[in-house]
Simulated assay, not measured.
Amino acid sequence: MTTWTAAYRSAMVSPFESMTLVHGPRGFADQTVRQVVRVRGEGERLRVRFSNLYGARPLVVGRVVAGGAAVTFGGGARVTVGVGEEAVSDPFAFPLKGEADLTVSAYLPEETGPATYHPFALRTTWIAPGDGDAPGGEESESGFFLSGVDVAAEAGRPVVAAFGDSLTDGVGTTPGADRRYPDVLARLVPAASVVNLGIAGNRLVSDEFGERGVARFAREVPAVPGVTHAVVQVGLNDIGMPVVFDVPPVTFDELTAGYRAIAGTAARHGITAVVATVTPFGGAQPPGVDLAAEEALRRRLNAWLRANEAGFAAVADLDAALRDPADPSALRPDHDSGDHLHPDDAGAEAMAETVARALGI
C-alpha cells in the first residue's frame, strides 16, 4: 500500500519580521521563480506544495513545471493560495529512488506582495521576467513559496523531521553541495527519509527569525506526512542572541519549559523525538563581550538535557561531538566554519553521526 510521505520540506519565514539576517521583504509580479531542491524517498509520483502562510494577499500561481512535467492543481494549471494557506498539487510522474534533484518553476503573473520565504536555501534560486522555466535571470540565496514535496511511497518507511536553527539549516556548510547535517544523516540512514525544518536564527521560546520553536514544532512537525521521528536542535540562539541583538535574555526555567512542551507535543502525536545538546559558541561574540554568564547557562542546560528530564526518546550530545577538548566553550578548530558558531562540512558530518546513533533507525 502506498501513502503520501514527505520527500522535501522548507520551513517558511514571514517577510514582515522586524529582524532579518539576509535581506528585507521582496515580492514578484509577472516573473518566474525557478528553484532546485533535493528530494528523498522511494516512489513513482510526487506532488508539490506552495505556501502563502505569511502573505498579506492571495497568492496567484499561473503555471508550475516540476521535473519537466506540467503540474496541475485540481486539474487546472492556475491556483490561488489564500492568505495563511497552502496549496497541494495533483500527483505527477517522477520516479524517485533514494535522492534526486527536482527543478520547480512557478510563474507568478500577479503582484504577490512580500513573499513567504526561506532565507538560507544554500541553493541558487533564479528569478526571470515573464512566463518561462529556462535557467538564468536574477539570482537569490533564498527560496520562495515552495514549502514541500511529497512522494507516494510504500507505507512504513520512517520519516525524520530535522527541526532546528542555523546548524540544522546548514549555515557554514558548502552552498550547493548538500552537506548540511540532515543531508549527511539521510545518507547514513538510507532506510528513512529525512526532511529539513531548520531556520537560521530560530529560537526555542521567542519569535522573530521564524516563529518560536515551541509553537513552530507543534504546527509544522506533526503535519509532515508520514513523520515518525524528529530531531530537536534549538536553544543556542536563545542563549547567545541577546549578546548580539537587542533582545531580552532568557532564563533556565523558560528554556526547560520549552523543551518539555516540545517533548509533550511529540509524545501526543506518537513521534519519536531526539533532543540535541547546545553546541559551543565561544569566540563568536563581538569584541570585548564577556560570555561567562551565557556559557554557564549553556552548561547548566546541557547537564539538564543529558539527564533527559524533559522525557525525550534519546539525547544526541552535539556539544560533546563538536567542542574543542582544549577549550570546551569553543568549537573544535577542525569543525569550525570560521565564525566560531557554525560547523563546517566536517562538523556537519560529526553532527549527523551523533544524531544517527541517537535515532537508532
Rank of each mutant, 00 (worst) to 15 (best):
F50S: 11
S51M: 03
S51L: 02
S51Q: 04
N52R: 03
L53M: 12
L53Q: 14
Y54R: 09
G55Y: 14
G55T: 09
A56N: 12
A56T: 13
A56G: 15
A56I: 10
A56S: 13
A56H: 11
R57M: 10
R57N: 01
R57L: 12
P58L: 12
P58T: 11
P58E: 09
V60T: 15
V61K: 00
G62N: 06
G62D: 08
G62V: 02
G62L: 05
R63T: 02
R63S: 05
V64T: 10
V64Y: 09
V65E: 15
V65R: 09
A66M: 05
A66N: 02
G67F: 08
G67Q: 10
A70Y: 07
A70D: 15
V71C: 06
V71Y: 08
V71M: 02
T72K: 04
T72D: 05
T72V: 04
F73T: 02
G75W: 11
G75E: 06
G75Y: 13
G75Q: 11
G76I: 01
G76A: 15
G76N: 11
G76Y: 03
G76K: 13
A77F: 08
A77M: 06
A77Y: 04
A77I: 07
R78A: 12
R78V: 12
R78Y: 03
R78L: 12
V79I: 14
T80I: 11
T80E: 15
T80D: 08
T80C: 04
V81G: 03
V81K: 04
V81F: 10
G82C: 04
G82E: 13
G82H: 05
V83H: 08
V83D: 01
G84H: 12
G84P: 03
G84I: 10
E86K: 00
E86R: 05
V88P: 00
V88R: 05
V88T: 14
V88L: 15
S89K: 04
S89H: 03
S89A: 05
P91V: 11
P91A: 10
F94Q: 01
F94M: 01
F94H: 07
L96R: 00
K97M: 10
K97N: 15
K97A: 15
K97F: 10
G98M: 05
G98F: 06
E99I: 00
E99F: 14
E99D: 12
E99N: 07
A100K: 08
D101N: 14
D101T: 07
D101P: 01
D101W: 15
L102Y: 06
L102F: 04
T103D: 05
T103E: 14
T103V: 15
V104H: 07
V104N: 04
S105G: 14
S105V: 09
A106Q: 01
A106L: 07
A106C: 07
Y107G: 04
Y107H: 14
L108Y: 10
L108F: 12
L108H: 04
L108M: 04
L108I: 07
P109L: 07
P109Y: 05
E110Y: 02
E111C: 00
E111Y: 12
T112F: 03
G113T: 06
G113S: 11
G113D: 09
A115W: 07
T116V: 07
T116L: 00
Y117V: 02
Y117Q: 07
H118D: 06
P119Y: 12
P119D: 12
L122R: 14
L122E: 11
R123P: 00
R123A: 08
R123M: 08
T124M: 10
T124R: 13
T125N: 01
T125R: 02
W126K: 00
I127M: 00
I127L: 09
